[in-house]
Design a protein around this nucleic acid. Structure first.
Lengths: 332, 332
DNA sequence: AACTTATGTGTAACCGGTTACCAAAAAGAA
DNA sequence: TTCTTTTTGGTAACCGGTTACACATAAGTT
């Protein structure tokens, strides 16, 4: 039925080793022989069995992307970046949703190990040091997104959350806000923590600064809605809200709308992430955009680089973010 | 390093065949022997190498999901449904973005074949009959989404696009619309075609019906925006627009906003699909919701069923859609 | 001419499972 | 007691590649 390397060898009148050498461009092969082999491969429509290759050579040309939830609007773009680069380099990507649960992540790692995956990209935050160490032992290259760099190996890709948050608050001051609140995400996440820190850095310099202007929002739309309630109770006079991510910013918009407060007229709103949905809200949301797609690309590129070089040295890359000004902060 | 089946056999004092039998619960094994083997497996932390299993047994416990673009808001939910079911059944899913290009899809199929994937879910529409036939020959089970059923094998999952479109138009008539336009998607897609047909079915009965009320919109936000321009030129008096999908509905909303036309006051708008972003527009969008997540689940379940039964008979399942009424059609 | 070194190709073991086939012991039937 | 039939378990081939090692020639050095 399907041609094997031995069929090709027989047809070309050479040994399997030679065929293998031709396929993989490895070792010495006389160019005439090579022609013969190539012709035989064409003729038999030979397709090397990846399974067999994997077994013998320990390479599967498959990587995995573990993320919390592909339904979260932040991740499709990232996944797309990863997939495009993977595809370009002949890799295939396995998608894993962990719902941000450590157990699920660990169980995925086990499965992936058994499948001899070549490497893993973690867009999650629940693995403890120990888990990562086990990855190293198992010699599985990996890259992490938005992690605190407390390892001696592995690659971490992050964006300038601190700087981005500062830029957001400064921008809001620029457009004339006199009292800016911050709705922050889960503090176990470095991203959320850094953004909060960025807010505080700038806010602390302001006369209106007070800790109760910082409200938890859980990184969800609903969290944003609730945060507005909580906030307006204590500070009916806020005129700017910086949300720790776009989802919460959308929630904030909803909450304000519900209260009959106009945006940006009475309150300016700024998000963080730059997901597509910031363009379809009314008003459109100003936001600190992360280069989401590029992060995916970079992660995949770094991973593939590590796979090829079987290098494991610690490395961290920080990408910049950019302020995108839209209607939600046009106070003038 | 890693324990193999032979290590286990040696430790348990049995043969590899017995170990394999225990692992796979196949053939006769004395329960005492089984205990011994299980103990040995525990002790050595034996993890069967999936690669080897695949090579020998032709099963990889991996399925693929080929879709146009995971960044399109319709697909993350679908992918999530697929992944959840796959995961539950011990399968792993490979994600492939085809950008709706036949070439890419075909090239993916080739790659996936080489990787001995167990089955494929197509959420795309560019494969010709010939391609599908080749899949059958290769004995790869597959299920398709929203395809015209012109095959004698394969599983097709679809939703009631025709009925949904009718329901949308009827709903708009109910709320008092006197002239309803339709922005339709690419007619190569059965989904778009069926929705257009559904619109026509109801609209034709109305005194205001005229073909120029049907405008192409390309299934994109921008297409929706442009469609509004085109439409308002010819029919400044429309008071209802039914968009063939939510993305275009969002575009329509944007276009109307730009023209200073109020929704739903002057014009009611209804979308189709039920993607999340319909909840964050202003006003929130009424839409015909597809059970997106469930479609993914069903597709995965059907595929796995086919893999297990190696059945190939033609089958088509149609799911219902539901009208979700939100602000954009509350004319009263 | 004698000795290296580079080039070209084949043999066979190996990766780690699955399974067809065979043999022996235990249980049941005649 | 003897002859099936059912259990139980081992041997070894096989899946389809990769690659260490051996061997033969050609080319380059002294």
């Amino acid at each position: 039925m399907k041609a094997t390397i031995r069929d090709v060898a027989k047809l070309a009148g050479v040994s399997v080793a030679t065929v293998s050498r031709v396929m993989n461009q490895k070792g010495y092969v006389n160019s005439e022989t090579e022609q013969k082999v190539n012709k035989a491969m064409k003729q038999l429509k030979f397709e090397p069995n990846q399974m067999a290759r994997g077994l013998a050579g320990k390479r599967t040309k498959t990587i995995a992307l573990i993320l919390p939830d592909i339904s979260n609007p932040f991740f499709p773009g990232l996944a797309r970046g990863v997939e495009d680069i993977a595809q370009y380099n002949g890799y295939t990507v396995i998608l894993c949703n962990s719902d941000d649960m450590g157990v699920k992540e660990r169980s995925y790692i086990e499965v992936l190990k058994k499948k001899y995956i070549d490497g893993i990209i973690f867009a999650t935050n629940n693995l403890v040091r120990e888990d990562l160490e086990r990855m190293e032992e198992a010699q599985i290259p990996f890259v992490m997104l938005d992690r605190a760099p407390n390892m001696e190996s592995g690659c971490v890709i992050k964006v300038d959350n601190f700087g981005g948050a500062k830029a957001a608050v400064e921008h809001m001051l620029d457009v004339g806000c006199k009292k800016i609140a911050h709705v922050y995400g889960p503090q176990e996440l470095t991203t959320a923590k850094d953004r909060l820190a960025g807010y505080e850095e700038v806010a602390k310099q302001q006369p209106w600064y007070t800790p109760t202007l910082m409200i938890p929002g859980n990184f969800t739309i609903d969290g944003g809605v609730k945060a507005v309630e909580a906030l307006l109770g204590k500070h009916p006079d806020v005129d700017g809200i910086f949300a720790g991510n776009d989802l919460m910013a959308v929630g904030v918009l909803k909450g304000l709308k519900h209260r009959g407060i106009s945006v940006p007229g009475q309150v300016a709103v700024c998000g963080f992430d730059g997901v597509n949905l910031t363009e379809i809200t009314e008003p459109e949301l100003s936001t600190i955009a992360q280069p989401i797609y590029q992060i995916g690309e970079l992660a995949a590129n770094k991973l593939i680089e590590r796979i090829n070089l079987s290098s494991t040295h610690y490395e961290t890359v920080e990408l910049g973010v950019s302020l995108i000004v839209r209607e939600s902060t046009q106070k003038s």
